[in-house]
Amino acid sequence: MVYAYLSILGMALILGVMGHRHTEVNHATVLHRAWRQLAPLLIRLPIALIAASFVGELIPQALFGEWLGERSGLSGVVLASVLGGILPGGPTVTFPLILVLERAGVGIPQLIALLTGWSCFAVHRVLAYELPTLGWSFVWRRWLVSMILGPLSGALAIAWL
């Protein structure tokens, strides 16, 4: 956790200094844009984390361990990829949910497959951005090649661990 804080603080400082030296970068504009992204999260994120914490207490852990735990192996990886692929919503929604799954005993390879499936398929993102801007002929090709990525990442993780 300390590493996370230090690394991110360091990067923010470096970029801030670079921005300071760059004539086209205006601190006020940048901070204003940051605030516009941040403000909704300050309300949504705590609520999401509390909701996720409640849901986590309710999930029957034994069931999860059996289907998606460390010992579920490749079938668990495939199941996790599919589950990740159909998860709707951006990171605000997904990460608290995935954290709940982790605490419920989902294995590391399965967790990696889930994250890969979610981030590559990204149903919410496709509907809101990709389909309107790039069209169906682009989307189905990208989906087709993305189908192997979730199971592949989980299988690699099993081989690695």
Binding site: I8, A12, L15, G16, M18, H22, V30, L31
Partner: peptide, 9 residues
């Protein structure tokens, strides 16, 4: 904040 700077740069 960091991302906003990166975006501007």
């Amino acid at each position: 904040v960091m991302a906003a700077y990166a975006q501007a740069l």
